[in-house]
Amino acid sequence: MFDWKWDFAFEILPRLLGATLNTLMAAGAGYAIALVLGLVLALAQRTPVRLLTAVVREGVEFIRSTPLVLQIFFVFYVGPQFGLRLSPWTAGMIAIGLHYAAYLSEVYRGGIEAVPKGQWEACTALSLSTRDTYTRIIIPQALPPALAGMGNYLVGIFKDTPMLSVIGVAELMHTANAIGSEHYRFLEPITMVGVIFLMISLPAAALVRLFETWVRRKLGMIR
């Protein structure tokens, strides 16, 4: 019943590693979108324009309250009805980037709110512009407390990339599934996918923690 075949495993390894590259690209691109868009969403909620703040707030809540896989389906299959014809890759990146942007905006928001009120007052006392206040004073201080949350979502987005397989993006899960169907053997490909995910996730989490310490030291927050 449990007959692991090493020769089969080695035979499919190159294909899986190729797909791993796709998975990493998907996670990286999605995360890059989420990092930038998340900051935009967080800052939009701090503008004095009440309507904008409310719309963004509700939008973020909406995205966080619905499943990612639904959003992927929506962008890819419903998009064309609105004239938005996207490749699986593009649709997937938009959906996963938007989804994680919503989560990251909350992380940023928490970080920004953790900056003491006195820092804002010091900026006003120096007549710093709003832009300089954010880019030079507030965001550098909001970053260290936000880094742990940002790191969690980096690993999170990586682990969520298999959801892109539902619209046919050739990432790891999709490839493993295809191999399984071709050879009528699922044990090796699916197990190997699990091992590959583990081998990337674990070091990534450790690297994030190292990076966090490095940033804090760089900013003079710790000795």
């Binding site: 006195g118 007052e121 900013l219 003079g220 927050m221």
Partner: peptide, 8 residues
């Protein structure tokens, strides 16, 4: 409370 910028 001084309010110096801690990262500078």
């Amino acid at each position: 409370h001084f309010n110096l910028f801690p990262h500078m």
